[in-house]
Amino acid sequence: MRAVVVASVFVGSLGAQGSAGVRVEEPELRRVLSDENLQAWKRHILPEAAAWAELPWLPTFHDGLVAAAEAGKPLLLWTMNGHPLGCT
Protein backbone atom coordinates (compact mmCIF):
# COMPACT_ATOMS: atom_id res chain seq x y z
CA MET A 1 0.00 0.00 0.00
CA ARG A 2 1.11 3.55 -0.64
CA ALA A 3 1.05 4.28 3.11
CA VAL A 4 3.70 1.68 3.63
CA VAL A 5 5.80 3.05 0.81
CA VAL A 6 5.42 6.61 2.00
CA ALA A 7 6.17 5.74 5.60
CA SER A 8 9.21 3.68 4.77
CA VAL A 9 10.59 6.34 2.48
CA PHE A 10 9.91 9.10 4.99
CA VAL A 11 11.77 7.45 7.83
CA GLY A 12 14.45 6.12 5.53
CA SER A 13 17.55 7.88 4.41
CA LEU A 14 17.13 11.11 2.54
CA GLY A 15 19.34 11.66 -0.47
CA ALA A 16 22.00 13.99 0.80
CA GLN A 17 25.35 15.41 -0.11
CA GLY A 18 27.72 17.77 1.56
CA SER A 19 27.91 18.43 5.26
CA ALA A 20 25.91 20.23 7.91
CA GLY A 21 25.94 23.99 7.67
CA VAL A 22 27.30 24.07 4.13
CA ARG A 23 24.82 25.74 1.83
CA VAL A 24 24.30 24.15 -1.53
CA GLU A 25 25.07 26.32 -4.51
CA GLU A 26 22.18 27.13 -6.75
CA PRO A 27 22.39 24.58 -9.57
CA GLU A 28 22.20 25.36 -13.26
CA LEU A 29 19.19 24.09 -15.15
CA ARG A 30 20.10 21.92 -18.11
CA ARG A 31 17.37 22.59 -20.66
CA VAL A 32 16.79 19.33 -22.46
CA LEU A 33 13.02 19.01 -22.74
CA SER A 34 11.96 18.81 -26.40
CA ASP A 35 9.17 17.63 -28.66
CA GLU A 36 11.29 14.55 -29.34
CA ASN A 37 11.69 13.42 -25.73
CA LEU A 38 8.46 14.76 -24.20
CA GLN A 39 6.63 11.41 -24.32
CA ALA A 40 9.62 9.56 -22.88
CA TRP A 41 9.75 11.92 -19.90
CA LYS A 42 5.99 11.61 -19.46
CA ARG A 43 6.32 7.82 -19.30
CA HIS A 44 9.22 8.14 -16.89
CA ILE A 45 7.29 10.34 -14.45
CA LEU A 46 3.90 8.62 -14.50
CA PRO A 47 3.54 5.60 -12.19
CA GLU A 48 2.76 2.08 -13.20
CA ALA A 49 -0.62 0.76 -12.08
CA ALA A 50 -0.73 0.50 -8.29
CA ALA A 51 -2.97 -2.01 -6.55
CA TRP A 52 -3.97 0.44 -3.81
CA ALA A 53 -5.19 2.95 -6.38
CA GLU A 54 -7.62 0.45 -7.87
CA LEU A 55 -9.43 -0.17 -4.59
CA PRO A 56 -12.86 1.47 -4.17
CA TRP A 57 -11.84 4.09 -1.60
CA LEU A 58 -14.52 6.46 -0.37
CA PRO A 59 -13.02 9.94 -0.10
CA THR A 60 -14.05 10.99 3.44
CA PHE A 61 -14.34 9.53 6.94
CA HIS A 62 -18.03 10.49 7.09
CA ASP A 63 -18.78 8.76 3.78
CA GLY A 64 -17.05 5.67 5.14
CA LEU A 65 -19.06 5.61 8.37
CA VAL A 66 -22.35 5.94 6.51
CA ALA A 67 -21.43 3.26 3.97
CA ALA A 68 -20.18 0.88 6.68
CA ALA A 69 -23.44 1.08 8.63
CA GLU A 70 -25.44 0.57 5.45
CA ALA A 71 -23.33 -2.38 4.33
CA GLY A 72 -23.09 -4.00 7.75
CA LYS A 73 -19.31 -4.10 7.36
CA PRO A 74 -16.48 -2.61 9.41
CA LEU A 75 -14.83 0.53 8.09
CA LEU A 76 -11.13 0.53 7.24
CA LEU A 77 -9.97 4.15 7.30
CA TRP A 78 -6.54 5.07 5.90
CA THR A 79 -5.67 8.58 6.99
CA MET A 80 -2.45 10.50 6.45
CA ASN A 81 -1.02 14.01 6.49
CA GLY A 82 -2.33 15.04 3.10
CA HIS A 83 -5.13 13.13 1.45
CA PRO A 84 -3.87 9.72 0.25
CA LEU A 85 -5.83 10.15 -3.00
CA GLY A 86 -4.05 13.45 -3.53
CA CYS A 87 -0.76 14.69 -2.09
CA THR A 88 0.22 12.83 1.05
Partner: peptide
Protein backbone atom coordinates in the same frame (compact mmCIF):
# COMPACT_ATOMS: atom_id res chain seq x y z
CA UNK B 1 -6.62 -8.08 -1.13
CA UNK B 2 -8.99 -10.88 -0.10
CA UNK B 3 -9.20 -9.52 3.44
CA UNK B 4 -10.02 -6.04 2.19
CA UNK B 5 -13.31 -7.33 0.77
CA UNK B 6 -14.55 -7.66 4.36
CA UNK B 7 -14.32 -3.89 4.84
CA UNK B 8 -15.78 -0.68 3.55
CA UNK B 9 -12.71 1.33 2.51
CA UNK B 10 -12.33 5.05 3.08
CA UNK B 11 -9.42 7.43 3.11
CA UNK B 12 -9.07 10.98 4.32
CA UNK B 13 -6.66 13.72 5.32
CA UNK B 14 -5.75 13.45 9.01
CA UNK B 15 -4.63 16.96 9.94
CA UNK B 16 -8.11 18.43 9.63
CA UNK B 17 -9.76 15.39 11.23
Amino acid sequence: RGRLGAFVLATDEVWRL
